[in-house]
């Protein structure tokens, strides 16, 4: 009894030949990074807009923002992934026609990116709102007093400060997003975890495959963490709470 480990498995070729197992994991890594990067852009865009709208002086718009956040935050990510890939196309015939005709990987990539982007946008919206509301009321009054429009007030006064405050929670959100891309394996997207499991099934070396995947995920998440820390230092306003040293 006991498990024997064999790390040379990564240097073996796949049964169909021509490709090594480390290359297989790497091909999954590119999909992971691609989904993470694209959905991060969607998440930041929608998260910023929705988060900002939730702080303006219009109850209807605030309600819509709240509804957005609650919708995407309260449905399990696994279920959302299933809905985007399997259910949504069934209700939109042109989309279904495209999904059937297109390369399966493209349809999976689109579903996964939209799903993760919108899910994360709800979380980022909550942080943007919190960031804006944590600013002293005086800033808003001062902006209004010097005659800025609402858009100018957010653009030049509130948001530049709010973003600096929320860099630490945004870092966690970015790291979460990277790790959440693994949920895309449930719709068959051949990302890193998918490839890891596949490698396990081919070689029956699950421990080796998952150890490698763990190290890769740690490396990506740590890189994201360091990049965000750098941004935090570079954008710090001396004397102000965020990033002040």
């Amino acid at each position: 009894m006991g498990i024997s480990l064999d790390w040379s498995v990564f240097l073996q070729e796949l049964p169909e030949g021509g490709v090594f197992y480390w290359e297989m994991l790497l091909s999954g890594l590119w999909w992971t990074l691609g989904v993470a990067a694209c959905s991060w852009l969607i998440a930041m865009l929608f998260g910023s807009v929705v988060g900002t709208l939730r702080t303006i002086d219009n109850r209807f718009v605030v309600f819509l923002g709240n509804a957005w956040v609650e919708l995407f935050r309260n449905v399990p990510l696994l279920v959302q992934m299933f809905l985007w890939y399997f259910v949504v196309p069934e209700f939109i015939p042109p989309l279904k026609a495209w999904v059937v005709a297109a390369d399966p990987a493209h349809a999976q990539f689109l579903s996964a990116t939209l799903c993760l982007g919108l899910f994360t946008s709800a979380r980022i919206a909550e942080q943007v709102r919190a960031g804006i509301q944590s600013l002293p009321r005086g800033q808003r009054y001062a902006a209004q007093a010097i005659g800025l429009t609402t858009a100018q007030m957010y653009r030049f006064v509130l948001l530049p400060m709010a973003y600096r405050i929320i860099i630490p929670p945004l870092t966690s959100e970015t790291m979460n997003l990277i790790k959440n891309t693994s949920i895309a394996l449930t719709i068959g997207l051949a990302e890193l975890t998918f490839r890891t499991r596949e490698m396990g099934e081919y070689t029956f070396r699950f421990f080796e495959a998952f150890t490698a995947a763990t190290l890769i995920y740690i490396a990506i998440a740590m890189t994201a963490n360091r990049v965000m820390a750098l941004i935090e230092r570079r954008t710090a306003v001396p004397g102000y709470i965020a990033g002040a040293k």
Binding site: L14, P15, E16, F86, D103, P104, Q108, L185, T186, I187, G188, A190, F194, R197, E198, G200, E201, Y202
Partner: peptide
């Protein structure tokens, strides 16, 4: 995903000279 059918199909594609696009369900019902 994760069944012996996957490598088998890839091998058949190579030897049988056919080209198929695969979608992987996470379980048989999917």
């Amino acid at each position: 995903a994760g069944t012996t059918a996957v490598p088998l199909l890839k091998k058949y594609e190579k030897t049988g000279g056919i080209d198929v696009k695969e979608i992987y369900g996470k379980d048989h019902s999917e």
